[in-house]
Nucleic acid binder design. Sequence first.
DNA 1: CGCGATCGTCGAAGCGTTTCAACACGCTAG
DNA 2: CTAGCGTGTTGAAACGCTTCGACGATCGCG
Lengths: 340, 340
Amino acid sequence: MATIEDVARAAGVSASTVSYVLSGKRSISPPTRRRVEQAIAELGYRPHMGARALASNRTHVIGLMAPLRSGVDVSVIMQFVTGVVTRARGFEHDVLLLTQDDVGGLERVAAGSMVDAVVVMDVEADDPRIPVLGSLRQPTVLIGLPRDAGGLSCVDLDFEAVGALGARHLADTGHHDVALLGSPPEVMDRHTSYADRVVRGFTATASARGLAATVEPCGSSPAGAQQAVDAVLDRAPGTTGLVVHNERALPHVLAHLRERGRVVGHDTSVVAVCPADVALSQALPMTSIDIPAELIGSVAVEMVMARLEGEQPAETRLLAPVLTERASGTPGPAALPVTP
Amino acid sequence: MATIEDVARAAGVSASTVSYVLSGKRSISPPTRRRVEQAIAELGYRPHMGARALASNRTHVIGLMAPLRSGVDVSVIMQFVTGVVTRARGFEHDVLLLTQDDVGGLERVAAGSMVDAVVVMDVEADDPRIPVLGSLRQPTVLIGLPRDAGGLSCVDLDFEAVGALGARHLADTGHHDVALLGSPPEVMDRHTSYADRVVRGFTATASARGLAATVEPCGSSPAGAQQAVDAVLDRAPGTTGLVVHNERALPHVLAHLRERGRVVGHDTSVVAVCPADVALSQALPMTSIDIPAELIGSVAVEMVMARLEGEQPAETRLLAPVLTERASGTPGPAALPVTP
DNA sequence: CGCGATCGTCGAAGCGTTTCAACACGCTAG
DNA sequence: CTAGCGTGTTGAAACGCTTCGACGATCGCG
């Protein structure tokens, strides 16, 4: 491997000059710059990142902690990761991947100076990683909204607004009896931040609009979905509008609604909360509230990068949800007052 | 941050002694070792990985190139990644994540000595990354089976055996008219290695067993699945046994078979080729040939690690597929010779 | 015409490890 | 009693880069 010295020699300059050509931190005369650049090209020189990190205290790597256990909303996770990696590359950074359960890993890579900054996904209401993150010297951004961010920056979809938007849309299209099929029971019980927030937004807006609202957790398996649908339809048979916030259960919910004689998009409205591609790959194109996971990932990187330059104060950014109408929506009873 | 010098001072030894305690490359007397370990604990010392990489030429990081574009078999990809990261941690290594399209990234991280080794996922029959990988000084393992590995090591599920196993199972359970619903047309056309191999194994074994076999690409969308099912059933209405090798299309294939009056697990046998968790989360628990993605990922790491120590010759490992019978299988006509 | 400012370049001092050669010490064997 | 050996420890030299301070040259200006 060619070193900076080799390049310097080939270009007839000193190593520091080469370094300045590379970093642009000092002005270099055009002819010198040209000679250096040519030498770099000829030798195929690549700076040794370890040496660079040692000298400059910058690794050009950011750590990303992602929930790799398969199961929950895989495609959302992939999109987060894609957003993070892609945006990081835009800042000339690479991404070191940590698994969710490897809590010690955060301390390890941070204290070992393997990363310049850290992004953590899937943060829960009372996340045990928050104190750890607070003690790192690297800037940190959380994807998710913990109860107490402990002075850390956060970014997330505004899930409370998601719930509200779902309820509002159903109300606006004439539904009166509505239900939210939420996350799996275990997620609900864990009080994963987003699950609670959706419920809160949904029930608040439903009651403000005078709707009769039911909330039911919903397992991701066919059986779980069936059970949830049954629970809602048995308890409130008049339900005509549903918000479904469980990507994996969605197909099974649709299937079971059908089995119970409901025709989605005709006598029953379903609003899915999921990434657009998932909404489109159902049996019926779903009216949905998008989870812009890739965008959130890239915003997270931007925030963390900003903190890597100047000292920014902690900040929380909640992205406004957007609803797209597709085939699974239909006017509810109140929209057709004359029909019995 | 405490440095190795701080630790040395606190323990009353030299820096090199601390280094040897850490690496175990030289014997250290028990009392000294104890003092050093205590100093490390007290100071919360963590070696600076950049410095270590510079001095030792080992980063303790492996590069992983993964197809992050969401869409194709997300859960399989996640499981690969999980397998790689988890196993790498077992070897005290971390994982740097590269996206599939960032071909230059390979050269960048390798030449910049950011990684000790590279694992590349989703390798195609004629993959443009192979020549690049061949020129790296770091050991490399491909997940997938290119036409010409160019002297690189590979690991993959034996997809030819998968196709054969599917056909054999259907033959053994008495089916005569069988079909393979394969990957999406674009994947087939790209001659992605595994798609071709499944087809080859399936048709060869089917014809060896005297079956009438149809092969049909199958898009992942509801429409694509429907079309594929229609194509098979229209062309060969007597088909009673299906192998489906498309995780995303699977639910739609099942739904459409049902719409066409087929009762899977009763008059029609379906063997899914997919990870076990996907097989279990269908409307009906699927008889399936597992794609042990996590295992493959961890094997890839083991291979690359072996190459990091001694010089191993290139090697190709194909994992034997395993079929698990569940509810979607049923005896075919030949198994009931007396019934008309 | 001389003076200070500006520009481009350089030498050297780190950055925090690893590792090699060497050394001190206490033993054993001759 | 000493030569020789093994064991545990050390000092110093890398590793490849960044960056600070300094220096000579060039320039504008009074």
